[in-house]
């Protein structure tokens, strides 16, 4: 899963001396990127490009890791053996995504430990969507359908993002997200065609997840100051509003096919633009959640801190044992 890059005081924003780039190198870099060439770890790159990427990739990685929690919340309660296996496999995929995204970020000169510390200290951001609670089983299907659906919309263009390791990580991530989206939709389909209680459960989940899903594309273009730079550097390939429109256009017919109602009184087809008009998400809520005020924000970070702290002795043991083995081989 994925959050649109939001400017924050995270790793890339530590006070650093102002870097004045060599104009010739900068021009050559800009030309390469404009020609859609991939930038590789050992290539020269402007500091601002490196910092933006570290911020974006680490936010993406953190989103995968924190994203394990709301879904992990239902592994123990999955209603059938098949659903339990699917959910466990899906959450495991997210751990895998986190792992190779951290690896991609490490090629830019930041360590996984540094990124983890930034997350645990509350300095790094992750997708706002994971600060909402998962209340019923229908949330599992709905997250797959909407949240992974929105993530794919964001990530497919990133397979052509200018930084090679990130683009390549995205190829695999997209394949798995696409499976997640389909299994989610299938799970909601079963509920929508199930008992009246199950259908009500599915509608309730759609009511709660719709607006947070639209917010996953980030603030409106006129409030997204970093977008232009990121587009020029091919870190980003479509604007937030373009992607949001695409998501709505694809998702509305899917909801109709399920017999579920999108909770937006302003939603209507606009023949002229060939897309849907829709209401405005509550951006005050978005910015509040970004700054750590989501209903489950405290719980999510606490869970990550506890996992990290409770696991410290295990990681120490692994290091100590490796040292002992090395010493024994040397002796």
């Amino acid at each position: 899963m994925y959050v649109q890059e939001v400017k924050t005081a995270s790793l890339g924003d530590r006070p650093v001396p102002v870097v004045v780039e060599d104009p010739a190198r900068l021009a050559a870099f800009e030309a390469r990127v404009a020609a859609d060439e991939f930038v590789e770890p050992k290539d020269w790159m402007p500091e601002a490009y490196r910092k933006t990427l570290i911020r974006q990739i680490s936010q993406h990685a953190h989103s995968e890791i924190v994203g394990m929690l709301p879904e992990g919340n239902w592994i123990g309660r999955a209603p059938t053996l098949r659903r339990k296996a699917i959910l466990l496999a899906k959450v495991q995929d997210e751990a895998g995504h986190g792992l190779y995204l951290y690896c991609a970020a490490e090629t830019l000169g930041v360590s996984r430990d540094q990124m983890t510390q930034a997350l645990l200290a509350g300095k790094a951001k992750y997708s706002t969507i994971f600060n909402y609670p998962t209340l019923t089983w229908a949330d599992m299907g709905t997250i797959g359908w909407l949240v992974d659906g929105a993530a794919i919309m964001n990530q497919v263009p990133l397979q052509r993002t200018s930084y090679g390791p990130y683009a390549r990580a995205m190829v695999r991530v997209c394949k798995e997200e696409s499976f997640h989206q389909r299994q989610g939709y299938e799970a909601v389909m079963v509920l929508a065609a199930g008992t009246p209680e199950q259908k009500a459960m599915a509608q309730d989940a759609l009511d709660r997840w719709w607006w947070p899903s639209l917010m996953m594309f980030g603030p409106p273009d006129d409030q997204s100051p970093n977008s232009a730079q990121s587009m020029r550097w091919r870190i980003k390939r479509d604007t937030n509003d373009e992607l949001r429109q695409k998501f709505v256009d694809i998702t509305v017919p899917q909801a109709e096919a399920l017999g579920l109602k999108i909770p937006d009184p302003d939603l209507r087809w606009n023949e002229e633009k060939g897309g849907y008009d829709f209401g405005t998400p509550d951006w005050d809520e978005f910015f509040a959640v970004v700054s750590g005020e989501g209903p489950m924000a405290h719980e999510r970070l606490t869970a990550r801190r506890e996992a990290w702290d409770n696991g410290a002795w295990v990681r120490d043991a692994a290091m100590a044992h490796a040292d002992k083995r090395t010493a024994r081989v040397a002796a």
């Binding site: 394990m68 959450v91 751990a95 506890e306 295990v314």
Partner: peptide, 22 residues
């Protein structure tokens, strides 16, 4: 084993434990 999911000491162990559970 599923109870560990998202709470393991390392990311690698999270992946391994999920494998066992699956």
């Amino acid at each position: 084993i599923g109870e560990w999911c998202g709470h393991a000491p390392t990311l690698e162990l999270d992946l391994s434990l999920a494998n066992l559970g699956l």
